[in-house]
């Protein structure tokens, strides 16, 4: 089992064992790392002699342009590195640039809300199986992925468990833990959340990256698990790993040091 760590800063790696490092952002194009930060991380990765995966978010055309500049740097400094894509437009861009393409946990869709655990045991076997599956569990999507040169797909450690088997698909799979992303928005709740004007509006506006200052815990009797509002994304915590992962082609664990936005 390959051990990867998705990290935010070098301090969060203290005491961790890993063969690969994940760096980047999945949820907000405004938080795509700067080229300077990426260059520093590449130096660190080379120094540690570990593999590197660059993580990308869903983006507008502005984000596409930002990523294009980063990919030029990656192409020179770490040719053939992995790029985790969470947007089909980014996939198209990466495909043209010759990186090793991995379908991230936003594109490999899964149902995730903890609220399903109120009902899960009473569902039909067909429903249970579906709720443990994902978009690339489907043979036709697997076939398409292989044809397009995709090598790996990624999964969240959802509360319902995982039934997917990639062992005969031509794809490998990774499992993210312990923070499951539940949902995400561009109408960010944290945008201007600490200003009087901000409290009266909702939509897509420029921000002061308030997400770097505040985080929330959300609790309610109707939600069986506590939710974390980190930036524009809701997360839940699940550190119980499914068994027999490698037998099913899930050969990489991606430990997330903290919910990264």
């Amino acid at each position: 089992m390959e051990k990867a760590v998705f990290f935010k800063d070098q301090k969060s790696l203290e005491g961790k064992e890993y063969d690969r490092l994940y760096y980047g952002n999945e949820f907000c194009e405004r938080l795509i790392p700067s080229i300077d930060d990426i260059k520093k991380v590449i130096e660190f990765v080379k120094d540690k002699r570990v593999n590197f995966s660059f993580v990308t978010p869903y983006v507008t055309d502005k984000g596409i342009a930002d990523l294009e500049r980063i990919f030029e740097v990656l192409k020179t400094k770490v040719p053939g590195c992995e790029v985790i894509v969470n947007d089909w437009g980014v996939f198209r861009l990466v495909d043209r640039m010759g990186f090793n393409i991995v379908i991230g946990r936003l594109l490999n869709k899964q149902k995730k809300g903890p609220e399903i655990m109120r009902k899960f045991d009473s569902l039909s076997e067909e429903s249970k199986k579906f709720l443990q599956s994902c978009a690339f569990d489907n043979g036709l999507n697997q076939e398409y992925a292989v044809k397009k040169g995709i090598t790996r797909v990624e999964l969240d450690n959802i509360f319902t468990g995982i039934s997917s088997d990639f062992s005969k698909s031509g794809l490998k799979a990774s499992l993210y833990y312990p923070y499951i992303y539940i949902t995400t928005t561009r109408k960010c709740k944290l945008n201007s959340c600490d200003s009087i004007r901000g409290s009266q509006r909702q939509g897509i506006f420029a921000c002061k990256k308030e997400c770097t200052k505040y985080q929330f815990k959300l609790k309610h009797d109707l939600m069986p698990k506590e939710l974390l509002q980190i930036g524009n994304t809701l997360f839940a915590y699940n550190d119980t790993l499914p068994i027999k992962l490698e037998e099913r082609g899930i050969d990489r664990l991606v430990f997330i040091t903290e919910p990264i936005i």
């Binding site: 809300g113 929330f216 609790k219 309610h220």
Partner: peptide, 28 residues
């Protein structure tokens, strides 16, 4: 990109998970 459900039970049909009046604890 939303993993929430809308129809888990009668509660959930009337009150989607994104609309629940959560208790909010602010960290930081």
């Amino acid at each position: 990109y939303c993993g929430f459900y809308h129809r888990v039970d009668e509660y959930n049909k009337k009150l989607f998970s994104c609309r629940i009046p959560y208790d909010i604890e602010i960290i930081g």
